[in-house]
Amino acid sequence: MLVAAAVCPATPLLVPEVASGAAGELAGLRAACGRALTGLAAARPDRLLVVGPAEPDERGPHAQGAVGSFRPFGVDLTVRLGEPAEGTVAEPAGGARRLPYALAVAAWLLGQRGGWAGPCEGLGVGEPLAPSECLRVGRELAAPPGRLALLVMGDGSACREPGSPRAEDARAVAFDERVAAALAAADVEALAGIDAELAAELQVAGRAPWQVLAGAAADARLTGRLLCQDAPYGVGYFVALWS
């Protein structure tokens, strides 16, 4: 049974070493993520599952302690899923799967608060996954006995303004506002109804993870709270807590 969920941005810019001189611009988002994780812990789940976007070779389950690296972003920093931030973390052995960047960001966030005391695993999902499949995956995740918490990583549209990573699209802001409203209200039907084709056109990285959340929360009757909404670089970022 799903007892709580936190929604956080997937952007590696949450990590100060990656953001470098712009780290201060995301301080509010970082702080909101910390509050969301505190809310997850307060729900006293038996296990935590981190869900985020992933490339084809990174999709599927990732075990507790799996290693992620920010070297692709120019920073010599590695993390382990569910473990404290302190100490030296070895790179994955040859052939071992590395955490998708979104799950690495989640591992960094968890590490900043001392790791996760109980069982913690990851799940990478991909943009081609149809909404109906996302909902099915979510229902299956919430079906086993015990108290489940989800940490859902994902970004909104990436084309909100001329300086965005993608060409500006007039539909982007309205799309993000609908997502923000759904997260604030824990509106499962609204998340389940996100148009996958439109989300892909707007370069939304969170559509599949959010719809997995919708499937998991279908029978949970959770209440929602939007802790932060921002778009400092023309990309929609959200932090929310469902409990």
Rank of each mutant, 00 (worst) to 15 (best):
V173E: 15
D230S: 14
P84H: 06
G215A: 06
G65C: 06
R225T: 15
G118I: 07
D46P: 13
A158Y: 06
A96S: 12
T38N: 08
Q203T: 14
A184S: 15
P209M: 11
C8N: 06
A102S: 15
R44W: 03
A93I: 00
Y233R: 13
A130F: 00
L202G: 08
M153N: 13
A158K: 06
L151N: 14
P165V: 01
P56N: 03
G138K: 06
D219W: 02
E168T: 08
V105Y: 08
D176P: 00
L183W: 13
E55R: 13
V7A: 01
R35M: 10
A184N: 15
R97D: 12
E55W: 08
G95N: 06
D76Y: 01
L40V: 13
V212N: 07
A142G: 00
F238P: 02
A6V: 07
A41M: 03
A63L: 11
Q112R: 15
P92A: 01
Q229P: 00
Q203Y: 15
A85L: 09
P12W: 00
A167Y: 05
L191D: 13
P92Y: 02
E197W: 03
P53C: 01
A192E: 00
G28V: 07
G60I: 05
Y237Q: 12
H62V: 09
R136H: 08
R225L: 12
G82A: 03
G21A: 14
R171T: 10
V3H: 09
A143Q: 15
R71G: 00
T11M: 03
L241K: 06
G122M: 05
L81D: 05
V15W: 02
P145V: 01
E127T: 12
W210V: 10
A107S: 11
G111H: 03
P100L: 04
G115R: 06
A32D: 13
R71V: 13
D76T: 08
F238D: 14
P144T: 01
E201N: 05
A104D: 02
A181M: 10
P162E: 10
P232Q: 11
R178L: 09
G34A: 15
P56Y: 02
V179G: 00
A32C: 11
R221G: 14
E91N: 12
P9C: 10
V137N: 00
V212K: 05
R178H: 13
E86K: 03
A42Y: 04
L40H: 07
A31Q: 13
A4W: 12
G34L: 08
G193W: 02
G111W: 01
R47N: 08
L226H: 00
G115A: 05
D195V: 01
